[in-house]
Design a protein around this nucleic acid. Structure first.
Lengths: 264, 264
DNA sequence: CAGTGGTCTAGACCACATG
DNA sequence: ATGTGGTCTAGACCACTGG
């Protein structure tokens, strides 16, 4: 178990800090499993302690040696931390500390950027895809479309400090937005599209919140391990006359958002 | 690997069905991991297939033999199914199929029983504890109480078809409800308590939704494996004059509820 | 008591990313 | 070519539940 450690590409100070965390003796084994104790220490180190966002951990083999457990046990702790979004593993590369799973408070009746209690400059939008295709079942119902009706489908990821925090799939009735692509292109802004088509205001008529586990494309978009638990929000926006104009499905890493709904 | 199976306490028909599910050959190994293929099959069997709620699975060792994998691999599939709430393991007893993780649609502005789209008779309430003690930090803020103010704290679990689906901790300002215990006792009803203290109506002023992982007492109350992902809802109720009278924290198994918020 | 799920080990092979 | 994380194995011991 105590073979030579050959840990090159990890910051030496960081390594020393982890060595200290790892060298602590374990508590009464039967009370709390060792892998949970390791999880506790690493989680604490990510949130309060010396580990900082973006830094790379030693390899699983080295960590197992440092914590004096088998790799399987080490991986159980790391897996939980990944499921919670505190760590992110990249195959063939390493394990990295994610941004703090800070809870972003989102108010239901505000737009995304305004509702995040952070500087707008930190938020970046990546457009993943923009295409016209038949509406999904959910969108068909929400937008009151006929079977096979065409929608404009927009996939985007919101990045906060270069980490994805929000992945949305939006669908718009195609017939309402003939100039969608052109209007969207300049500033990647849906508000611009609305304006270009004479829609000055809209309101959210329904929001749904549910939980689940990430599909592979969701995990990819949010840079999470597959099977990570998610929170999903769906919203229907309507114009001032009550006609639905947008259906959106958003996904958040489970522990990174708090949605706030106030009665008016 | 193919040692004698001595599976007694499991229904023989059930065993035969699982044997069929298990005997299917695995697909291209590198495409989808074996443990995920096992998960897929069992998940499907829980949702659509032959497995029914309440029935007991063969032991992990037997399942591992049936599926022709090691127990460790078998456990990975079972663990994911437990995390999703499809299965429930009881130490020293066995693994059981839970009620379908049907999604209960809860509307934000209705009371619990009314908002569940099921017969009221199927819903039972278990009162876990009822005590007076200093307010929690969250309740202090929500109810605008002073540090150390006393609250009445009520822990309850809602059972649907004898399975827990909702675990709440409610806190009420103690000074507003001098007769709480007496009024609650008869029918385990908070509405009765309100009425006994002259509160005829109230409204929900704020709802928050967040996700996280079950603490040990939450897992116990909901009969889930520890570290299971949860959805948490907090709500503040006020009387007609706007004075907050109740703070409640609810927990749901992640994939078993859909919350619906409509704009009025 | 026997059987169960929970934990842990010391190996092994693979696909992947990087230099 | 090397090192990484992802997967898988065949054991082992434990604490718990139930008859």
């Amino acid at each position: 178990m105590s073979k030579r450690l050959n840990i090159a590409s990890v910051d030496q100070d960081e390594l020393e800090r982890i060595r200290i965390i790892a060298s602590e003796p374990y508590g009464n084994k039967s009370q709390r499993a060792i892998w949970l104790q390791i999880y506790d220490r690493l989680s604490n180190a990510c949130i309060h302690g010396p580990l900082s966002a973006g830094s790379r951990l030693p390899s699983e083999n080295d960590l197992a040696d440092l914590f004096d457990v088998s790799r399987v046990t080490m991986r159980r702790a790391l897996t939980k931390l990944q499921q919670e979004g505190q760590l992110q593993a990249r195959k063939g590369v390493g394990i990295f500390v994610r941004q703090h799973p800070a809870r972003y408070a989102i108010s239901s009746n505000m737009r995304f950027v305004e509702s995040l209690n952070v500087d707008a400059e930190q938020v970046k939008t990546h457009t993943l895809s923009l295409a016209r295709r038949p509406a999904s079942l959910e969108a068909m119902e929400a937008l009151r479309l006929k079977q096979g009706a065409e929608v404009i489908c927009l996939d985007r990821v919101r990045m906060l400090n270069d980490e994805p925090v929000y992945f949305t799939t939006k669908e718009f009735p195609a017939d309402l937005f003939p100039q969608f692509e052109a209007a969207y292109e300049a500033r990647q802004s849906v508000a611009d599209v609305y304006q270009a088509h004479g829609i000055k205001d809209f309101k959210r008529v329904e929001t749904r919140v549910s939980g689940g586990f990430a599909h592979s494309y969701e995990a990819e978009a949010l840079q999470l391990t597959h099977r990570t638990p998610l929170m999903r929000t769906t919203a229907i926006n309507s114009d001032t006359k009550g006609k639905p104009i947008e259906f959106s499905l958003g996904r958040w890493p489970l522990a990174s958002v708090e949605l706030i709904f106030n009665e008016q």
